[in-house]
Amino acid sequence: MADKDVGTSGPAPAQETEPKKKRKKAPIVWGIVIVVIVVLGIGFNAWHNTPGFCNAICHTPMDYTVETLSSNDPTLGVTVHAQSGEECLDCHVPTLNEQVSEATKWMSGDYYYDDATQMLYEEKDGQLIDYSDVIPNEQFCLRSGCHDVTTLDELKNKTSDMALNPHDFSQHGYVNCGDCHKMHRQSVLICTQCHGEAVAEVPDGWAASTDNEGGLE
C-alpha cells in the first residue's frame, strides 16, 4: 500500500534514487555472500574430510565404520590406518561417480547391515561383497607414500616363513591385496578356500574361507 502512495506522489525521482542506493549496497552484499560461501566452503571441505561428514546423513551404514577408526583392534585394517594418521578420503578418493554410487545405494537400500555384528556390506544374490569402488590392488596399496614396496619380491620375502607363502604369486597370478586384507571387516586368508592345510596358518584375528569343502591338491 505504501508503494502506491510513493508512486503517485513522485514516480520519476524515486526511480532515480533507488537504483543508486542499490548500486552502493550491492558490492557489500555480494562481498558478504562470497565470504560466507568461502568460509562455509572451507569449513565444509574440512568437515568433508572427517568421519563425521560420512556419518552425518548415512547414520546407520556409517556408525560401525566411524567407530572402528578408534577401536584399537590391531587386526582391523581401518583402525591401523586411522592410527597412522590416514583419513577416510586418503583411500576413498572422492570421485563424483563414487559419491553418486554410494548415495544411490544408501537411498535405494541396496546394502546389508547386520545388527548382530554391526557390519555393513553390499549384497547381491545373497553374496556379501565389499562396499567400495576402490580396487585394493598392488598399484593402489603399494603406491609411493603408502605401503612403499618397490618390488613384489620384497613383499614375498616378508612372509617367506609361511609354508604356503601367500605373497608368492607364481602359481596363481597377482592377487588383489584386498581379496585377503579387508579394511572394514575381518581379513580372510583366501588360500584356505582350496588349501585345507593353510587353515593352520590363518593369522590371529583373521578368518579362514567359509565355503571351503576341504584341502585339495
Partner: peptide
Amino acid sequence: VKGTAIAGAGAA
C-alpha cells in the same frame, strides 16, 4: 530392501 528398492531408486 527389495520392498523399498523401487521407491528408493525413484527418489534417488
